[in-house]
Amino acid sequence: MERPAKTLSPALADPATIPGWGVDADARNDPTYPIRDQSHDHGLTRRWDRPPVQQPDVEILQSIEHVRQPAVVGTSVPPRGVSGALRRLAFRWSESNWLHWLILLGADRVDVVEGVMEDLSRGTLPNVPAEMGLGAAWRHDRERLVTRWALAAGTVAVGAAIAANVRRERLAARRTVLLPARSHEEGSGTRI
C-alpha cells in the first residue's frame, strides 16, 4: 500500500484509519519558500547518490549525531597534545550538550599555550605585537594605542608601588610581632 509518510518506521499508522486525514493540508502553507524547495524532499532517508567517501589520513573527530562519516572532511590541524585530548573528550557529548562546546572552548585556550610552546620548541619567539597587528594601530589609532600603553605602564607602576608598600608593611608588622614577644619574654623573666 502507498503511504504518504516521508520516513520509515515499523510503527507507521495507516492514514485510511485516521479520521479526516489530510483534509486541511495546504501546500501554500510553507514558510520555507523560497529557501527550501520541498518538491525535492525525498523523505527521511540517507539513501541519496553519495559521492565517493574520502579516507582521511589524519584523526577526524566526529559528532555523535552523525550516522556515518560525511563524504568529504577537512584535514587541517588534527587534534594534538592536551588540547587534543580535551577535544576528544568533548566529542563524547552531542552538539545538544553545553558541555561539548564549553570543553571545546577550554581546549581552544589550552591550544594557544601549546602553540606558543610549539613556536619556542622550534627556536622562534612569536612576535606577538606584530601578530596583533599593532602596526595598523600605530598608523591609524595611535592615540588609543599610546593611551593603552600608558595605562598598562601606569598599572604596572602602581602595582609595583603597592607591592613594595605591602612588603614594607609586612616587614614592619613582623618587627612589631617580634617586639611584644621579646617584651613578654622579658616580662616572664622578671616574674621569675
Binding site: 527550501r36 525535492h40 524532499d41 532517508t45 559521492p51 577526524i60 559528532s63 572532511v73 552538539e95
Partner: peptide
C-alpha cells in the same frame, strides 16, 4: 556542498550533510 544530499537537493547548499564531520548543525 555536495549537491546530492537530502539538503542540497532542496537548495539548502548552506546545510550540506556530506561536508562537516564535526557538527550536523553546521554545513561545511
Amino acid at each position: 556542498a555536495c549537491g546530492h544530499c537530502h539538503f542540497c537537493q532542496q537548495g539548502l547548499y548552506g546545510n550540506c550533510h556530506e561536508s562537516n564531520p564535526q557538527a550536523t548543525a553546521v554545513g561545511g
